[in-house]
Design a protein around this nucleic acid. Structure first.
Length: 760
RNA sequence: GGGCGAGUGGCGGAAUUGGCAGACGCGCAGGAUUCAGGUUCCUGUGUCCGCAAGGACGUGGGGGUUCAACUCCCCCCUCGCCCACCA
């Protein structure tokens, strides 16, 4: 949970690091806007009120944020620089406007980026998205696809699943593009294939419904009557909601394509299973080696040809039952007969290039980032549309382009800013003619893609960030966030950082070399949401038992990366939580220790130093649950030592300090009030441990007979192999278990274990 | 359909990466304190047999490697997440 990040910040500060632990609010965007509309409030009013409440809650929880660097992305002082960055991308051709089919959420009345469409539905509200052809602003993230992929290999230390998710999202595939010619018209059509080695097995050709040639070809082929209804239906279906139902559906166009490798004429089809969004919107179909093509061929009675056979299997080219997509040897493939298949892919690609009929190509699944939104609560796009000069950048000295307050901000088909009586009126910065402002706002993810730079020089009125200060603080030593950011925020931020690097503004290319995913707090197995009404506010627990209890409950409940089911953890709200009782025992033990003159007994000293070592390691690795467990063990041992009349001052001091990052209020009270230190525990230096003391001196050696534990013997940690063997074989319990059988082998692993293997 | 991850007591979870399974805590049971509830303290608590000493079993299921497997390998089951007509 979130207090883990705070614990690490406090821990690293105590270790002497210069820690920048900032806080900010990504406050523009749909959730805030929708919530405000629902309450009948202005988004600005609602947002700031909400921020204040959260800030209070954070303070109450003892979060050690540097409040002087606090940011809100909806402040004009902030979004001025978001707009500036937009203009920098525009200058470099990385922000551009184009007409294309886009995802439209009818409920939120705005377009969405591909990344914000989950299983065909709006990420925010769950409404099935529609497709619309609109002119929108895009960021050219596809220019960076390869670098976004490569840099994950050696520049970031991230959870595997996040790396995998980004990799899948970018979706690089290697193959070849091949040019087919339409026999009747001479049109050249490019296709992409990952399997150019199957080119000789192509028996038909399929276009996506959106392909620009479809209508023309149908007309020439005389099939417009059959094709038209299919197009109409497919084009009106939501982009992402074309399900398996129409897998084998398709209509012949009545024209033929010429296979460039063998001159064969193959029939052309239009079918919904081919997507315009991937590759070129047209495919060569190889039913012998692709299951979908085979299904389609069966349905439409098309030829199937095998061109790759399992090696060594002298099988005739009968109709395959299943498309063979494994390795093998090429057959029926002209000059390539006998070549081994996966290896031949590159050769075929090279050969195509020689012949001028194709070339090796790499495609990516990643699309350009659509950043226009037809909503009010966002940073206005700083562009003016001039009848003569087209899209013109707002001059930097006129930034920010302020978001007006007096707007009917309810969503409705076009941007609310367009409905404002005068806001969009402007003059062209180039010619001074009357012009119109762009009335869309930017996707919130633009705001959050660069905020970490702003934290380094938050008040700077002359630049987005101070490069020198960025050089000092960045990249971020430790980033934390939920997995929900695995693709969106992390991908966009990496893109922005690379762009800024290419502009010469920053010296590094990855903003977050180290990332930890924190789990969410859920309730009864379901994620908490306002609509489900199962939000657990931290405040009731904090009011009743204190912030430290809340922090410890969350940190102790499970590993940092795992979700916490509050229903399972919380217990009876009227009963004192276990961690609270523990803190009580810490106070009592420290109090007793403070009154004792005796020095800590040896066993306790050793445990204290071992605990410091262990907790230090645990906090470095975000393992708060085991760190707390170790502190509880130390507390128990202190109490035993005190009960036996010994001292526990060293233990109490170290305990208070190690508690400081986790339970800052209790730790401070123990440190100052109970132990009488004049300065704060939070400015004390993290305790050091003595290697010799931390090393265990006596350990329990286990004696096994045939793998079963039969005895335990206390030995010196430095005990020799011989002594271990002797002790084990002398053990009465072991002798009883051996029961006179022949001893075949004695495995000795000093000082922990001896295993006596018998003939039985 | 593809990819990734996970399955350990009544519950949350430990286990130095092949070496004492269940640390620490919650819960529960018994006891002490208390008029009572709560608090606090002590004891016990994987399952089965046994008064006990002790023994057998035990990390989703099945097989394997090893002196030794929660950990490594193969097959299967269940759950979670991500992607999904990706050519």
């Amino acid at each position: 949970a979130f207090s883990g990040g705070d614990a690490v910040a406090r821990f690293q500060a105590m270790r002497g690091h210069n820690v920048l632990h900032p806080i900010g609010w990504d406050a523009f965007g749909l959730p805030a806007e929708n919530a405000a509309i629902k309450r009948g409030l202005h988004p600005k009013e609602w947002t700031y009120a909400n921020i204040e409440q959260q800030a209070r809650s954070f303070r109450r929880m003892g979060m050690s944020f540097d409040w002087t660097r606090r940011l809100h992305t909806c402040d004009p002082e902030y979004y001025r620089w978001t707009q500036w960055l937009f203009l920098k991308l525009f200058e470099r051709g990385l922000a551009y406007r184009k007409n294309s089919p886009v995802n439209w959420c009818p409920n939120d009345a705005t377009v969405l980026a591909n990344e914000q469409v989950i299983q065909g539905a709006c990420e925010r509200c769950g409404t099935v998205v529609e497709r619309r052809d609109l002119t929108q602003w895009f960021f050219k993230i596809t220019d960076y696809a390869q670098r976004l992929l490569d840099d994950m290999d050696d520049l970031v230390d991230w959870p595997d699943r996040v790396v995998t998710m980004q990799r899948n999202w970018i979706g690089r595939s290697e193959g070849a593009s091949v040019t087919f010619t339409i026999d009747e018209t001479g049109d050249e059509v490019e296709v992409f294939t990952t399997r150019p080695d199957t080119l000789w097995g192509v028996t038909f050709f399929v276009f996506a419904a959106e392909h620009p040639l479809v209508r023309k070809l149908a007309e020439i082929g005389g099939t417009l009557e059959q094709v038209e209804p299919l197009l109409e239906r497919v084009l009106s279906t939501p982009l992402t909601a074309r399900e398996e139902a129409d897998t084998k559906e398709g209509v012949a166009l009545g024209v033929y394509a010429v296979n460039p490798v063998n001159g064969e004429k193959i029939p052309c089809y239009v079918a919904p299973y081919v997507l315009m969004e991937y590759g070129t919107g047209a495919i060569m179909a190889v039913p012998g080696h692709d299951q979908r093509d085979l299904d389609f061929a069966r349905q439409h009675g098309l030829a199937v040809r095998v061109v790759i056979r399992p090696e060594g299997e002298d099988r005739p080219d009968e109709e395959p039952i299943e498309a063979w997509d494994h390795e093998g040897v090429m057959v029926n493939s002209g000059p390539f007969d006998g070549e081994r298949s996966p290896e031949s892919i590159a050769k075929v690609a090279a050969w195509l290039e020689e012949q001028g009929r194709g070339r090796a190509t790499v495609t990516f699944r990643l699309r350009d980032w659509l950043i226009s939104r037809q909503r009010y609560w966002g940073a206005p796009i700083p562009i003016v549309h001039c009848p003569e000069h087209g899209e013109v950048a707002v001059p930097e000295d006129q930034l920010p382009v302020l978001l007006p307050d007096d707007v009917d901000f309810r969503p409705g088909g076009e941007s609310p800013l367009a409905r404002h009586p005068s806001w969009k009126d402007a003059t062209c910065p180039k010619c001074g003619q009357a012009a119109t402002r762009d009335t869309d706002t930017m996707d919130t993810f633009v705001d959050s893609s660069w905020y970490f730079f702003r934290y380094c020089s938050p008040g700077d009125e002359t630049q987005a960030f101070n490069p020198e200060k960025v050089g000092r603080w960045m990249p971020v030593s430790q980033y934390t966030g939920g997995v929900e950011h695995a693709i969106l925020h992390l991908l966009y931020s990496r893109f922005f950082t690379k762009v800024l690097h290419d502009m010469g503004l920053v010296s590094f290319t990855e903003p977050f070399p180290r990332l930890m995913n924190q789990g969410q707090v859920i309730y009864g197995g379901a994620s908490m949401s306002k609509t489900k009404g199962n939000i657990v506010e931290p405040m009731p627990v904090v009011e009743r038992w204190g912030a430290d209890t809340m922090r410890l409950m969350m940190l102790f409940a499970s590993p940092f990366e795992d979700d916490i089911d509050w229903k399972l953890i919380a217990g009876d709200p009227d009963r004192r939580p276990g961690v609270t009782s523990w803190l009580g025992r810490v106070f009592a033990a420290a109090g007793e220790a403070a009154e004792r003159d005796a020095v800590d007994p040896d066993d306790l000293r050793r445990l204290t130093h071992r605990t410091i070592r262990g907790v230090t390691e645990d906090l470095e690795r975000f393992r708060f649950n085991t760190a707390i467990s170790k502190l509880q063990v130390l507390t128990n041992e202190m109490r035993s030592a005190l009960d036996a009349g010994g001292g526990a001052r060293e233990a109490a001091s170290a305990l208070a300090q190690m508690l400081a990052p986790l339970a800052p209020f209790a730790a401070e009270e123990v440190w100052r009030e109970v132990l009488g230190n004049p300065a704060s525990v939070h400015v004390s230096a993290w305790p050091a441990y003595d290697e010799d003391l931390a090393r265990e001196e006596r350990v329990t050696m286990v004696v096994q007979v045939d793998g079963k534990v039969r005895d335990r013997i206390e030995v010196e940690a430095a005990v020799s192999e011989e002594v271990c063997r002797e002790l084990a074989l002398a053990s009465e319990r072991a002798i009883r278990a051996i029961d006179g059988r022949e001893v075949r082998q004695v495995v000795v692993r000093p000082p922990r274990l001896v295993n006596v293997v018998t003939a039985g």
